[in-house]
Design a binder for these strands. Structure first.
Lengths: 249, 249
DNA sequence: TCGAATTTGTGCGTATGTATC
DNA sequence: GGATACATACGCACAAATTCG
């Protein structure tokens, strides 16, 4: 590669990207196959492959095995309302799903665990203390939209009907309602919003591409200043924004 | 690859990622070279390369040509408190700077402009209407930390002492105080938090690398349901998290 | 100062598996 | 089933950058 030139695969990727952005290759259009790219641009199979991979990593296209590489629809960014707890909403994902009336479904899996250093600090318990860990996958219109991992100290919920978040009389009704059922009054929560590249596992679960960005929200519920639950919420940044409505005092 | 198994390059990437997360490969440590990965894991050159690429895309490591692949330092993330307006704080960056007592400085530049389609929609005015656009660069401990572009409709502030955000009797005291000076009572605001790759211009101003992720917050101040100011706040995602403290009703 | 060894980054050719049409 | 196309994988080559004696 001579000085000052781009690598061949970037040159090819740039040209294809330009065609996508100009509308010459609209959403759902099929890219030239790897073999065609090879002949059209006069490059090797590897370069054609690398060029496709760049565009896939950037989220412009997706490969479908046996079929082709297709221009992705750029999803309109949807809003996920994060503030304003409504005690009537029968879902732990009240906050996650409340957006423009969109209906959601979710699946969950609970398992007893011991607190890591990080989780212990967030719950103000000791590392190694028993916690109930619950994983959620939330779907909006059957499309994976949100991952959440929640931790609750067993010292609080053990030997109570709300031990398992999704079982019992108030199962699936959210942290505030469940805690209220055992006379723990949740009065505020904090959300720490950050962004990072999604881990391979996460982007796989969310139906995205490894390396794609996710919004990570570390949420902690408090009762009288004492943390009673904490969670990591992971959202694909391409599709969603987290919205906070704040009063001005 | 037999059914149900992961591809080899993901298996290798997972193992290296685990070593990084467990601290076995601390920041600045050098990963095994491609040749060593090949022999240690018994895989081909391509697989070793692909595994490194996965970790690079995830931001865990960075390759330095001719030297090696190194574990990246994860800067301790600082918190930027976004909720809880304090009318005593003499700064439009009250929200931006309030974190653990860190002091901040800022510079600004105001210019009259006409509203774009997007800004007009956010301020509920007509595209082309006159607005005052103000750019801010906020520094925390002399290090660029936050960019903000604010728009205010001239129909509201024109021919008043608060036309320029940083001038006059209440200059530099924030949107709420300035609006109060012209009898506009700001009562709430919304923040839409998203994440995207930083533009070259932004990452240059923030002292980062093009392509690095930023958190973008679209903030709008309202008075009696009417938008009176809107802003785009851009924060380097590697260094900061936006924190919201929310009441539970 | 020079040069050799190492390492990453890029590129090539090929082969095989598997999904889709 | 056959043809097509992507996904993974192997082995190799070379340039550029770095490191180190």
């Amino acid at each position: 590669m001579p000085f000052g030139e781009q690598p061949a695969y970037l040159r090819v990727a740039d040209d294809l990207r330009r065609k996508i952005l100009e509308g010459q290759l609209p959403p759902h259009a099929r890219l030239p196959s790897q073999a065609r790219i090879r002949t059209e641009y006069g490059v090797s199979d590897t370069v054609a492959l690398e060029a496709r991979k760049v565009l896939m990593a950037e989220g412009f296209v997706e490969g479908r095995s046996g079929s082709g590489t297709y221009v992705r629809e750029r999803p309109r960014q949807r809003r996920i309302i994060r503030s304003g707890y409504l005690p009537t909403a029968p879902s732990p994902f009240r906050q996650e799903q409340a957006d423009e009336g969109v209906k959601g479904t979710w699946e969950s899996r609970s398992i007893q665990d011991t607190a890591s250093v990080d989780v212990a600090a967030r719950l103000r318990i000791e590392p190694g203390d028993k916690v109930m860990r619950t994983h959620y996958l939330f779907r909006s219109e059957s499309e994976p939209a949100l991952l959440s991992t929640s931790w609750e100290p067993l010292a609080l919920t053990g030997r109570t009907p709300v031990l398992l978040p999704e079982e019992g009389p108030v199962g699936g009704q959210g942290v505030v309602a469940r805690m209220a059922a055992i006379d723990v009054r949740v009065d505020h929560l904090t959300e720490e919003v950050g962004a990072r590249p999604g881990l391979a596992e996460e982007t796989a679960a969310l139906g995205g591409v490894p390396g794609h960005m996710v919004i990570e929200i570390r949420r902690t519920h408090y009762a009288s200043g004492r943390p009673v639950e904490t969670a990591d919420v992971v959202i694909p940044a391409e599709k969603y924004r987290a919205v906070y409505d704040l009063p001005v005092r």
